[in-house]
Structure formats: C-alpha cells, structure tokens
Amino acid sequence: MNPALYFALSGAGVLVLLAIWRTRAMNRRFLAGDYFAGEDHSAPSEPDYSCLELGSKIFDSSDSVFVARETSPRFARRFREERTGLALEWLSQIRRHTNRFMHLHARAARANPDLRAKDEIALGFDFLIFHLTMGMLYCAVWLRGPFHVAGLVGYSVAVGRHFKELARDGLPSAPFSSENVVVAAEDPRGNRSTVAR
C-alpha cells in the first residue's frame, strides 16, 4: 500500500479521535443532570455481586431442556430467543458495572501523587483484555445464543486443560482425542448437556 495513504489515514485518525472526544464530552454534559448528579463520588467500594451472580442462572441450560421437552418447538425457540436477549443484557450490565468502577478509579487516581505509571498501565491492559473478551462473548451470544456459547467455552477450557496436561506430562506425541475431554454435547433439539467421559 502507498505510504501516503498511511499518512493521510493518521491525519484522519486525529480528526476521528477529536470527534469521539467531543461527542463523549457532550454526552456527559447531557447526562450530568440525571445520571451523574446522583452519583457517589467516593472511592470504589466493595463490589456489588448481585448482577454478577445472575449469570450462572442465565447461561444454565437445564430449564431450556425442560421447556424443550415439555412444550412445542415454537415455544422453545421463543424461550431461547428471550434468554439470548437476557444474556446480552447481562453482559452489558457487567460491562457497565466494570466501566463504572474503572471510571471511579480514574477519578480517584488522577489527583493522587503516589500514582505509579507501571501499575496503571498494567491495570489498563487488564481492562482492555476484559473488554475484548466481553466483546467477543457478546458477538458469540448474539450469533449462537447463551447455551451454545457456554458449551463452546466449556469445550475450549477442557481442550486447554488437556494440552496443559500433555505439556506437563511430556507426551507431545499423544494424539488429541475428544475422548479425553469434557465434551459439551448437544442433542438434536439444540439443548446442551455436559458429559464427562
């Protein structure tokens, strides 16, 4: 690609950054009357786990299995759609929750002369990774629904665990087999059941 294009893009990047910055600032000012006015400006307190704990119920497929067994396929599909919406809302809530305490952290840290750049960069990096993970999960849930995603994550964790064990035992030649891992199997109706072999 022509280097001139990179330079032109870098100039356009500055303009886009400015536009985002101004839009965010305007939104904040617009929200200042209702949302931020009632905000507690104290340092981050102990986390509110109520919204976090809800997740395991939303991603659990047992009631979906029950609904699929007891009701019509149309009703079961509607149920899964509703659950997908709920899962997406839960993920958004987690993101908002995380953004809020990071915002409070930044507000508290900005005036603190003891701030350590290394720690802040590490924290920012963790936050970025968390956001990327959330983004990927959000897309996956939106595309495939919460039960499939939970199954996929479970499968990936099991595969990772399997490779870790292989590396530890020094058996690189052992062929990978789905027999060795916990498989998230699906029945023909799309319901997930975890089977340990």
């Binding site: 340092a43 786990y49 990071m102 924290l123 964790v157």
Partner: peptide, 24 residues
Amino acid sequence: QALLAGTRRQLSAARTSLARTMRP
C-alpha cells in the same frame, strides 16, 4: 495502593464471575 488493590479486586471479581458462568 489501597485504591489500586480495590480496583483490581473488582476487576478480578467480574472476570471470575464471567469465567464461572461460562464453565460447565
């Protein structure tokens, strides 16, 4: 340091909760 520890704890709690939710 207390502020940093508090924020890290909250981020870790959110991450753990997410992982626990997804894992079978």
